[in-house]
């Protein structure tokens, strides 16, 4: 398909007549075939956005288009083509997980039994157990299976990793990648960057109902830079290293130099070569640090997000 998979225009939600502004004029678009991470602290408005997309909530203002269809007038067709994982899974019935999944599949006029069985095997879920007796993690598996089982073009997942142990989280991420590689789109929320930065192509950060930023994870990584440490044989002057291209946050502690390298390390290495180098240690980008700055109050984002924070 062409055009955005999800596109919102001025999408706003206020609960109650004079209640909280949970979502404030959201402008966002999600492209086909990407995994889009929707991040923000608790209460930021992630669940609100997701439920607006599915016509479970009605916008106070603005509109949303999903798969090219209007969320209000074409809700039925949208829900036919979307898989949804709610943020909190109810599943308190007496029926078995298998029966529940069969029922939910029937609401979509049937889902191949094989598809359910394969997913259950993959997530190691016992379909015979009554859903009410399942642990939180196992309910989460049932939720994931019902979202993925009809191989929808778009998956809208509200905090998919919550409740899954690390192994299953990896399994889920692997599944997400496969689905993306087959051309489908995934929109998933989380309040922890680490849960999505491995798979997401782009992330949006929401805070107090407002969109703070949208950017590709690669750009974020680029911007975060590699924390780097160089040990010299003797103390070095800090002045020699400040102002180098692609080097920031320079500190010198005797013979140890610490800095963050963004982009190429060439300038730093050539300058270091003027001294006697004993050891070089370069770490992966600290996305969390950049990201946490977005979470903090207004004003902080500028310095955390900027290239020259130091």
């Amino acid at each position: 398909m062409n055009g955005a998979v999800i596109e919102t225009a001025g999408l706003s939600k206020t609960y109650g007549k004079r209640g909280t502004r949970a979502l404030d004029e959201l402008e966002m678009s999600v492209e086909p075939g990407e995994i889009f991470g929707f991040l923000g602290p608790n209460g930021a408005g992630k669940t609100t956005t997701i439920r607006l997309l599915l016509d479970l909530l009605r916008p106070t203002a603005g509109s949303a288009r999903v798969l090219g269809l209007d969320s209000r007038s074409d809700g039925l067709e949208i829900r036919r083509r979307v898989g949804y994982l709610p943020g909190e899974l109810p599943f308190g019935g007496r029926e078995s997980a298998g029966d529940l999944l069969t029922f939910l599949g029937n609401l979509r006029s049937g889902v191949p039994r094989e598809s359910v069985r394969a997913l259950a095997e993959r997530f190691d879920l016992d379909l015979g157990k009554p859903v009410r007796a399942l642990s939180k993690g196992n309910k989460q598996k049932v939720g994931l299976i019902q979202a993925f089982m009809h191989q929808p073009e778009l998956l809208v997942l509200d905090e998919p990793s919550s409740g899954l142990d690390p192994l299953l989280q990896q399994e889920f991420l692997a599944l997400a990648r496969e689905v993306r590689d087959s051309g489908h789109t995934i929109f998933m929320s989380s309040h922890v960057l680490a849960e999505v930065d491995d798979v997401a192509d782009r992330i949006a950060v929401l805070r107090e109902g407002r969109l703070v930023t949208v950017e590709s994870v690669d750009a974020l990584r680029e911007r975060a830079g590699h924390p780097t440490e160089i040990r010299f044989a003797e103390p070095v002057p800090v002045g020699a290293f400040t102002g180098l291209v692609g080097v920031r946050d320079v500190t010198v502690d005797g013979s140890i130099l610490r800095c963050v390298v963004t982009g190429s390390a060439d300038a730093l290495i050539k300058k270091a070569a003027e001294f006697t180098v004993e050891r070089v240690l370069s770490q992966p980008p600290d996305l969390e640090a950049v990201f946490l700055a977005y979470y903090a109050g207004p004003g902080v984002e500028a310095s955390g997000g900027g290239d020259d924070a130091a």
């Binding site: 439920r51 599915l54 479970l56 809700g75 039925l76 067709e77 829900r79 036919r80 979307v82 949804y84 709610p86 909190e88 899974l89 109810p90 599943f91 308190g92 019935g93 939910l104 609401l107 979509r108 019902q146």
Partner: peptide, 14 residues
């Protein structure tokens, strides 16, 4: 109140 309506109405059922 149990949250099940959220799941059911996220399916193609008007």
């Amino acid at each position: 109140e149990s949250g099940m309506l959220d799941v059911l109405l996220a399916h193609p059922v008007s």
